[in-house]
């Protein structure tokens, strides 16, 4: 299970990460070995087992539609490195200026 450099670049693009050539090679190796490890699961025969999304007891947990007190804006923003007009301020990350 060896990832190509193109695959690493694609994954980096999805996460909006700018990687140097050395980093691409480094992550290619690391991600490949993680994938190879996870790929061991493919050896288990699951032919008779229905797809399982959860191993918890089956019951729907639902909430009544009743409003509760939210956090204060001060609390919400207290760890934000940049803020303006009670909003988070972030750099532009998308290619079309969004």
């Amino acid at each position: 299970m060896q990832l190509t450099i193109q695959e690493v670049e694609h994954i980096a693009e999805l996460a909006k990460l700018d990687l140097s050539d050395e980093e691409k090679e480094q992550y290619r190796e690391q991600l490949s070995s993680i994938l190879a490890y996870a790929a061991m699961l493919q050896n288990v025969d699951t032919g008779d087992i229905p797809p399982t999304a959860s191993v918890l007891p089956e019951r729907s947990v639902l909430r009544e539609d009743v409003v509760q007190e939210p956090l204060s804006p001060e609390t919400v923003l207290q760890n934000a490195p940049h803020q303006k007009e009670q909003q988070f301020k972030v750099p532009i990350v998308m290619e079309n200026g969004q």
């Binding site: 940049h82 303006k84 007009e85 909003q87 988070f88 301020k89 972030v90 750099p91 532009i92 969004q98």
Partner: peptide, 8 residues
């Protein structure tokens, strides 16, 4: 907001 974005 200029060359930054504000988030709500």
């Amino acid at each position: 907001a200029g060359n930054l974005r504000l988030i709500d």
